[in-house]
Amino acid sequence: MIPVMIGVSIIVFSFMHLTPGDPVQIMLGEYAQPAEIEAMREKLGLNDPLPLQYWNFVRNVLQGDLGDSIYYQQPVLTLIRQRIKHTFILSLTSLFISYLIAFPIGIISALKRNTWIDDLGMSFALLGVSMPNFWLGMMLILLFSLKWGLLPATGVGSWQQLVLPAVTLGTSGAALTTRLVRSSMLEVIGHDYIRTARAKGLSEWKVITKHAFRNALIPVVTMIGIRLGFILGGSVITEKVFARPGMGRLIVDSIFRRDYLVVQGVTLIIAFSILVANLCVDLLYGLIDPKIRYE
């Protein structure tokens, strides 16, 4: 995990240095005075040798200092703190919705394999990932907000405002999990212990829920970390469509404003969240699958 974190920090650090031209000039705009530019370069430490710059960057990050936003004139960490809640609420709700779609469809498709029900279920699941996220969001706004006036289209605070963005993001994440649930159910159902469970007279419901589903769940759980990464990525677009003040929207706006320190800070937080989620999944894995034990 440590080498990966170092790698992540190097990539994030190099963001500013990859940009063609002088990043300070771009940040301050074309009317900036040479003295201002020089002062900014000095403040950001851009006159130091590259390894020293990287060392200072890492040291500051470890001390919880992500620098200041040029646009907001505030510490990047403060900006993130104001927004992180909205992004995580959206991501977790979307994750929940995607499982809500994936489990029933995946299980039924597996049980009714190669029938029209299977075809319909899997096509429906794939439909979610086949739509551009923002387009689905726009269509939902068009119908539910503009036409029928049932749900608010923008903002944060109430659960009503969470429904449309979470459905938008959750639908796009459902396909992969549905496929995974279906294929691992298909695999499990073929095993001898399922035949044994049936043979000893258990109800089909018990066989499916207690014996098949629990074992089919293992590959699904290991994917949670990757799913979270996908959903955090999707939130970038979804937050923009629904005008939610989250980290995704902050990063996109900052990319356009050339507010590099914000881009660095938010990317770093998102990447570390994904790494931590993956670590948790690895640890959780041992709990769900008794075959795996960590020494």
């Binding site: 992540v8 990464g229 990525g233 990319i255 990447a271």
Partner: peptide
């Protein structure tokens, strides 16, 4: 592993 820690859409945008 390092690249997997970034949402790919975010890298593409950048």
């Amino acid at each position: 592993d390092i690249l997997l820690a970034f949402p790919s859409i975010l890298l593409a945008i950048t």
